[in-house]
Design a protein around this nucleic acid. Sequence first.
DNA 1: ACTTTGCTATAACGATTGTCATAGCCTACG
DNA 2: CGTAGGCTATGACAATCGTTATAGCAAAGT
Lengths: 194, 194
Amino acid sequence: MSESSPSARDRIVAGAADMISRRGLNATSIRETAKHARAPLGSTYHYFPEGKQQLVTEAVRYTGEWTARSLRKELQAGPVAGLQAFLALWRKIVVDSDFRAGCPVLAVSIEEPAAGRTSAALAAAADVFTTWEGLLADSLREHGAEPERAANLATLIVAAVEGTVAMCRAKRSTEPLDRTAEQLRTLILAAVED
Amino acid sequence: MSESSPSARDRIVAGAADMISRRGLNATSIRETAKHARAPLGSTYHYFPEGKQQLVTEAVRYTGEWTARSLRKELQAGPVAGLQAFLALWRKIVVDSDFRAGCPVLAVSIEEPAAGRTSAALAAAADVFTTWEGLLADSLREHGAEPERAANLATLIVAAVEGTVAMCRAKRSTEPLDRTAEQLRTLILAAVED
DNA sequence: ACTTTGCTATAACGATTGTCATAGCCTACG
DNA sequence: CGTAGGCTATGACAATCGTTATAGCAAAGT
């Protein structure tokens, strides 16, 4: 099983993102992320000297960039195509995991930082959301949507997709995804042909 | 018969819901919920002999019913008024907690049950979402929306609100809530006057 | 050949977790 | 009065957490 493997560091980050998306932030331990990536525990603190906070922050950014890349590519075919790809991406994660995985960015967003300290991971999550919104809003504007409406709709899309993925997990069904997909599609169509 | 103040049992449930909405499911410990409710740890296992699973399930149902009550009442003034109340309810939680609290139902939905066991708490979360969707869909239909469109829109509203609350926490801003509010409002108006 | 550098291995620390057991209080009912 | 039962108090259990320390390895630079 030793293919041209990505570096151990990258395996740890990707594995952490996956585990956070399933069990949440606090239930994801450094020990298990290391084991999951077949890396020793000692290495984890070698690669991430600031500890869990740093690892989580990088996992959030990793997911954000991975998703943004797909979004950017598919949006070239227009905002509706971008939405479909965005939805398909999360649907695949939900279905392939048998309704056990979701979005790690959302998971990090809803767990309060331990002490009064501000969390770097939370700030990274905010950045990811803003990036996704920006990509969608730009595409909507390029296709004729009014600027303010484009921004509002982009926020709605990101929020709705995040919420829908969580609902699919609770219900163990993709029906919520189908329903919001239909609504969001007609919304985009109405916004670009004003 | 201390009926004047809520019973210790109810205090524990309400406190657990609050703590879950801030720190997430796994970071909420039985010991701290007991302390937060000024109840002894021993009592918690007296009231909830099935342990954490039972307490969490009741906390989810408690939040679900509390919210459904408010939703049912405000929907009597129409679906737009119901939406505004729904949004205002969550906005208050987010703002009053200085962006540290959110929805405990969402928090439970995104943390995988420990082992392969199915989680009663997750099933309760699914029920809560379905209840909220049903209330909204009924109101939309009563005001002239097409049945299928009403169901789809109700799902979108619940998902969007849940996602938006999480985004507000990450960004430490209520702007996402304002944006989705505007979009959802016009969506409802379009659906009831077909 | 010697040292530096990047990574691994192993063990330990204090703290906290869910859960359970046991003994005690305190009120209410017979 | 006495006794039963709902609730409290206390402490223990095995496990796991994040983190740190220390010693070791292999290759690369000099």
